[in-house]
Design a protein around this nucleic acid. Structure first.
Lengths: 343, 343
DNA sequence: CTGAAAGCGCTTACAG
DNA sequence: CTGAAAGCGCTTACAG
């Protein structure tokens, strides 16, 4: 195995500059500007450049308890929106002079523990958790974060937490969308999504039912359907699932993800069912592709940039608070509802 | 600011177990199994659990030159395919007991330098570079990687490098796709993409021209068009760009990205142009959404999993080689071409 | 089977 | 303005 070339240390720079290690440290870190003479500064800067000196971050972080790392936990299978939020957060971290250390889970508690240990071992005190709603062990996740000083969750976790949470306003989103569909004359609006024991699921359902109730139209419970998979990845799955629904004469479908919606559209068209005349299609997670589709998809347009900003704001805020507010803050972000030709 | 609670160190565990720090270190690291008695092991393990001990990774990495971190550089604006590759690589790193340290660039040389410094300061010796083709400073990027022991690039960088490169086989991809389109009777196949001074661009063009030449059909140069933006994000842009093309009576369009292709489809339909009867549409970067579209998009289906495996393989291989092969290996991966109703 | 000692590269009071 | 010294938490020969 090829050896990495020996890297220059502070000692090397000091020797080269003919000064002591501490003087070099002071100059290179730019604190206490009056600590060294102009001549010394120049000699040190020259030596550092000549030797291509880079500080050893492990040594630095070993000795300075404060570090500027924010841990970010995301699932590698997370929907595209979460990944957009991740990239948004990275930009925000960068401009705030933080580094993002990213841990990726793979649908197993072990992989989460692994990365949490990495964070803890790296002195990470601040964590943004983007993914935590797992059918099997979601409730066990919040406790894993107790060791950190500051945490913010995207979406309400399945267990109790004393950390802030930023979430989409699922109740209002569903209430508004379904109300509008009802106003447009749709009566048999089927919502198709996988069952999760999380807040997003139950709040969505609550909003869905409330819209029907407010409109004084019965039967809503019947229209709330559980899908077997979270995304339809091919024609067969979509057809199979839709065939369970079509005999019930839906006049609108709310589908959880754009990829599934595209497949649904394809199946419907092949069956000679017209969109939106016979069935309206509504996306619960509009992507750029869905926005550009023909017919253009209607749906919830979450704002990853906004979401990233709120998450970061809560994390930075909590740095400044002596005593965390109780109960911990909850912020709900409404989606923009885009109405296009699919409805 | 809330203080993180003091973490237990090896010394604390040693005190709790009534043994020396070194014995604890040996036991907890699991090497030299016969180093401690069964009784000592148990006491140490109990103490570590009781104190919730986590090794300080900075201290460990300071003292052990070998580390298991792979640096990954990606652009936050990279197309979805690159992000898929990133998640693929994370999984591979995880099972190979490596950690991925992710640096994200933002279209500026400074942000790249910043993360490269982070890597260098963290003792990272192995780097996978996913994004480096920038119009303004792409040529300056490869030299930044000279300080690392092992590097592998996705796609040929714009400057010379002695590190291995894994890339899509753009020449063959375009040659095969265009040949097939010609065989299907298309004659005015316009390729629309932004101009880049990189290998992907020139190889694609070479394949495009070669297909026409092999078929003995003239005019290919005229059909290779430069688009002003890399992705059409709305109807206006797509319409504006397409209006430059339509007077030239294209009978096929190769479009660089699915989002643009969706907009193109929408514009064409509104203009009463039929797909594929009047114009065939072909995607140079098929996404899952494009595969599910109606009509289903034809296009290049790159395999992120395969790409991730190859990249990791080259990196791991280079660990074992005393002298890197010269010239450095280049691996070209052909895309699967999916033919659907859009052609 | 167990431990004393040295050292990784850095920063931070502190003394001159 | 400059430097000697201590120490962060860990691992690695080495000696008993």
């Amino acid at each position: 195995m090829k050896k990495p070339e020996k890297k220059a240390t502070l000692k090397d720079v000091a020797r080269e500059a003919g000064l002591s290690v501490m003087t070099v440290s002071y100059v290179l870190n730019g604190k206490k500007l009056n600590h060294a003479s102009e001549e010394s500064r120049r000699r040190i800067l020259d030596a550092a450049r000549k030797l291509n000196y880079r500080p050893n971050l492990h040594a630095r972080r070993l000795v300075t308890p404060k570090n500027n790392i924010i841990g970010l936990l995301i699932d590698s299978q997370a929907p595209a929106f979460y990944k957009d939020v991740m990239f948004e957060l990275e930009k925000l971290a960068f401009v705030n002079d933080f580094r993002l250390q990213i841990g990726m889970m793979h649908e197993s508690l072990d992989s989460i523990r692994h990365y949490i240990d990495d964070f803890l071992g790296s002195g990470v005190n601040n964590v943004i958790c983007l993914s935590h709603n797992y059918p099997d062990f979601g409730a066990q996740i919040p406790v894993l974060f107790e060791s950190f000083g500051h945490v913010v969750f995207l979406e309400e976790p399945q267990g109790p937490t004393h950390f802030p949470v930023v979430a989409a306003d699922h109740y209002s989103n569903y209430f508004n969308a379904v109300s509008e569909l009802l106003k447009r004359g749709r009566r048999r609006i089927f919502s198709c999504r996988r069952h999760y024991h999380d807040c997003a699921f139950s709040e969505s359902k609550r909003g869905f039912l409330a819209a029907y109730q407010t409109a004084g139209i019965p039967g809503a419970e019947h229209f709330w359907r559980i899908m077997e998979t979270s995304i339809w990845h091919n024609h067969e799955t979509a057809e199979h699932e839709l065939n369970k629904l079509l005999p019930e004469k839906p006049d609108a479908l709310i589908i959880h993800e754009d990829e599934s919606l595209f497949w649904a559209l394809r199946v419907l068209k092949r069956s000679g069912i017209r969109v939106p005349e016979d069935i309206a299609l509504f996306s619960a997670n509009l992507s750029n592709y869905g926005k550009a589709a023909t017919p253009g998809f209607s749906g919830f347009d979450y704002n990853s940039s906004e979401m990233g900003h709120r998450l970061m704001k809560h994390l930075l805020n909590s740095f400044e608070q002596q005593n965390p507010p109780s109960p911990p803050p909850r912020e709900l972000i409404p989606a923009t509802i885009l109405w296009q030709e699919s409805c």
